[in-house]
Simulated scan of single mutants.
Amino acid sequence: MRILMAGASGFLGTRLADRLTADGHRVVRLVRRPTRGADEVRWDPTSAHLDPAAVAGADAIVNLAGAGVGDKRWNAAYRALIRSSRVDSTTTLAVTIAGLPTADRPKVLLNSSAVGWYGNTGDRPVEEDAPAGNGFLADVARVWEAATRPAEDAGVRVVRLRTGLPLHRDGGLLKPQLLPFKLGIAGRLGSGRQWVPWIAMTDWLEAVRFLLDRADLAGAVNVVGPRPVTNAEFTRELAAAVHRPAVIPIPAIALKLALGGFATEALTSTRVLPGVLTRAGFTWRHPDLAGALHAALT
């Protein structure tokens, strides 16, 4: 397949592009800088610029573009960037797809979303049919997913990847935690009762490949592991994985001072289950957290 990818230089995109290329697919990367070869196409989603010829004939489009929610302390400007970087890229792709002749449209758009859609679910487990919750990330997810509508209305299969927290030592949830855990100065966040929707990186990659191929699957898909845990359980498992104690809890007030607005999301309980993937017969290589952490750290 010829796969057009946005966000190919990010934490998830880099690994997915490598995996798809290794599988024999041709990955064409959308970039904002000058191109460096035939497998790159320049675009500017902030001004909705994308050459339709670059999209025409692609078998699939994968959009993972978006500023990292945990990369910087949240202020008004960064909140705006989190939202615009997702909505602008999705809108540009969806509108461009819809404007193409039917024969030139891709068969599928896999568009990133997030489990933040559900807001704070407390101890209540939710699947893909649950409504959007409240909070900043839930609001972002609503407009982000709605931006795919032009492609969907044009008859293209659209999959909204409500991704949880992929586990890998080089980024995402694990990278900033590894040093304090290895030093034995880490612990649960706040009460520790909030649910953590994790997924092994290997399983995230496999799930995306699975969804590329499954023409019968569309709409929202929770890309998470089948057995979510609380933050307290996650803390214990990560401490065991690095062979260090984790007995210093981080109070909620300390998180708010350190992280600003992002602290509220870090303390949110999101007990998300992968209903669509489970019913479709997807098999997780690492369904348990201990195995996923071992794979992530080796």
Rank of each mutant, 00 (worst) to 15 (best):
L174N: 06
L174D: 12
L174R: 11
L174H: 13
L174E: 02
K175T: 03
P176H: 01
Q177Y: 02
Q177V: 00
L178G: 08
L178W: 12
L179R: 14
L179M: 15
P180I: 00
F181A: 06
F181L: 03
F181G: 03
F181S: 00
F181R: 07
K182Y: 00
K182G: 02
K182V: 06
K182N: 05
L183I: 09
L183T: 12
I185V: 15
I185S: 15
A186G: 09
L189T: 04
L189E: 11
G190Q: 03
G190A: 03
G190R: 01
S191V: 00
S191Y: 00
G192V: 00
G192A: 06
G192K: 08
G192Y: 05
R193I: 04
R193A: 11
Q194E: 12
W195G: 06
V196C: 02
V196Q: 14
V196D: 04
P197C: 03
P197I: 01
W198C: 04
W198V: 06
I199V: 15
I199K: 06
A200H: 14
M201L: 14
M201P: 03
T202A: 14
D203H: 02
D203Y: 08
W204I: 03
W204T: 10
W204Y: 15
W204L: 15
W204K: 12
L205W: 10
L205D: 14
L205S: 09
E206D: 15
A207E: 07
A207I: 02
A207P: 10
V208W: 04
R209F: 01
R209Q: 14
R209Y: 01
F210W: 12
F210S: 06
L211Y: 13
L211G: 07
L211P: 15
L211R: 12
D213T: 05
D213Y: 01
R214F: 13
R214S: 11
A215Y: 07
A215D: 15
D216R: 05
D216N: 14
D216F: 02
D216P: 11
L217A: 11
L217W: 05
L217C: 11
A218M: 01
A218R: 08
A218N: 11
G219S: 08
G219L: 01
A220I: 04
